[in-house]
Design a protein around this nucleic acid. Structure first.
Length: 492
RNA sequence: GGCCUCAUCGUCUAAUGGUUAGGACACUACGCUUUCAAUGUAGUAAUACGAGUUCGAUUCUCGUUGGGGCUACCA
């Protein structure tokens, strides 16, 4: 059987990093089995719909490299479209289907109309809580005469449809991560499956859709574990085969509570904007709860498809640890090839107004090379490289090496400027300069530090920066000499 | 409160009825170096607690404690 997994978010805002991980795992399972990965939108709660969130979800997945085979996608104009023959893939467009199958449940005696008011339900809950009883619907309308119920519905009385849970026995199922899980049926609520507004609840829609979209593996967050028996009961009533269930441990805040907005950024978009690379993000979230059992830390999406095993996922929640993300980002940044480096970094420099984008790519690559190992994110790049484009302002005092003196700098710098001016443009590259200046330093009996420190500071204007010859090469001869002369001026 | 579930360094995790409990991030020290970064080497640091089974338990069982999820006409 063809493996089919789906990611089925609600369009209530930006794609959450936890959602990204869920989507990734679902994607990996589909891909490693030669199956299909679908995207379905679960918008059964009209009140919570947020404009633009479908687009945001799709774009975030796309950024991460998780291509959707079937379901909701964006066309070239950025419009939401649907691809596949098992649609629609947006639940609000499937109301007729839910209606048909909820009616079947009703006709088969597996569901019933409920006319209880919100007030009664509220009172009931308060009473149960006050008396420390298990909370839940008391099944009052379950015993209503069917004909009478039908009359009340036809008279236009407000009502919902509830699922009849068995009142005895237990439901046991196998979760791929947790193993066997058992619930007592009597403690499971008669869940509302069709709301008063005619929309299905999650519990009903998810079962109907997963069935007709032929989903073979349900991969979702842990928060759904306890409602799984309800879903299984629906499969049972329809005599449908239930998919394999997998409930993922949650992502946690540093204080171990469920990952929330209050304690940091949770939207994938936030991390895009902060300048994290998609490969780093994917590698990072993949390792939150999973690892290959080897000592390999760096995994591309392709490698993950190959190596990922759902059975190796941890049972406990994982803290969303940004320090590790930074490290991953640095690793991927460092390993970028020149062309890739220019491609991913250029937009950030353009946005900062540092470059126009028409510069020589070779030169841009060399410039980026200067800082790629010292920044953690792309967002830090413009600030880090600014000194190349703008003549730096700095206090002349920092030209003095910690083991040197003002007098020494005053002696070294002018002589060095004069010497470097004799280096030809052809020789103006870091390796050659290193040799030439090194020779000059020795000949004049200066120490390396007393030459390199002030040279570097005069080129970068910073106490901490890339090496002097790397900068000089990128800057070019004219600008470099000019900066050394400006530095001399600061020593007076 | 009820139901479900989880528990190895600060964090992500590996391992197994017998190991000096391994790795990564972070942290510290040292090396390399003009600085920072990168890199190399070393180091600090964990089996929540209590019983039981066993020659032996971090691993199996039970309990305790603690965390999390659910307990909606939200997903």
């Amino acid at each position: 059987m063809m493996v089919r997994t789906r990611f089925a978010p609600s369009p209530t805002g930006h794609l959450h990093v936890g959602g990204l991980r869920t989507a990734l795992y679902a994607y990996l399972i589909a891909k490693q089995n030669g199956g299909k990965f679908l995207l379905r939108i679960e918008d059964t709660d009209q009140k919570r719909f947020v404009e633009g969130s479908i687009e945001n979800i799709i774009n975030s997945l796309k950024w991460a490299g998780l291509d959707v085979d079937e379901g909701v996608q964006l066309n070239a104009d950025g419009k939401v479209i649907q691809v596949g023959d098992k649609g629609p893939y947006i639940q609000s467009q499937r109301l007729g289907i839910y209606k048909k199958y909820s009616k079947q449940l009703l006709d088969d005696g597996h569901a019933y109309h409920c006319f209880c008011t919100a007030e009664r339900l509220e009172d009931l809950k308060n009473y149960q809580q006050a008396n420390k009883l298990p909370t839940g619907y008391d099944k009052q309308c379950r015993s209503l005469d069917q004909g009478e119920a039908q009359n009340r519905v036809e008279a236009g009385e407000v009502h919902v449809l509830r699922l009849k849970m068995p009142i005895a026995g237990e439901t046991t199922f196998v979760d791929l991560i947790r193993g066997e899980v058992t619930f007592k049926n009597e403690l499971i609520d008669d869940q509302v499956i069709i709301k008063a507004d005619g929309f299905p609840t999650y519990h009903f829609a998810v079962v109907v859709d997963d069935h007709f979209m032929e989903i073979t593996n349900v991969i979702r967050g842990d928060e759904w574990l306890s409602s799984t028996p309800k879903h299984l009961q629906i499969y049972k009533y329809f005599n449908w085969e239930a998919p394999q269930m997998t409930h993922l441990p949650l992502l946690l805040n540093p204080d171990k509570s469920k990952l929330s907005k209050r304690q940091g950024d949770v939207a994938v978009e936030d991390y895009i904007n902060k300048g994290y690379l998609p490969e780093a993000m994917i590698n990072f979230v993949a390792f939150l709860g999973w690892n290959p059992g080897t000592e390999q830390e760096i995994f591309s999406l392709e490698e993950l498809v190959k190596e990922f095993k759902m059975e190796k996922i941890n049972k406990s929640g994982a803290v969303f640890n940004l320090e590790k993300l930074d490290w991953y980002n640095q690793q991927y940044l460092k390993n970028l090839k020149n062309e890739e480096l220019v491609e991913v970094c250029l937009p950030w420099l353009v946005k900062a107004g540092l470059v126009t984008g028409n510069e020589d790519k070779q030169w841009l690559a060399a410039a980026l090379e200067l800082e790629k190992e010292r920044v953690k994110t792309l967002a830090e790049l413009p600030e880090a490289l600014k000194f190349l484009f703008v003549i730096p302002e700095y206090d002349g005092q920092i030209l003095i090496w910690k083991k040197g003196s003002v007098d020494e700098v005053k002696k070294v710098l002018p002589a060095l400027a004069e010497f470097m001016d004799t280096i030809s443009v052809q020789d103006w590259n870091k390796d050659k300069m290193q040799i030439l200046v090194g020779g000059w330093t020795t000949k004049n009996e200066f120490s390396n530090g007393s030459v390199l420190w002030p040279l570097r500071v005069s080129l970068s204007g910073q106490q901490n920066s890339p090496g002097p010859f790397e900068i000089a090469e990128v800057l070019g001869k004219d600008k470099s000499i000019k900066r050394i002369k400006l530095a001399i001026g600061k020593l007076s």
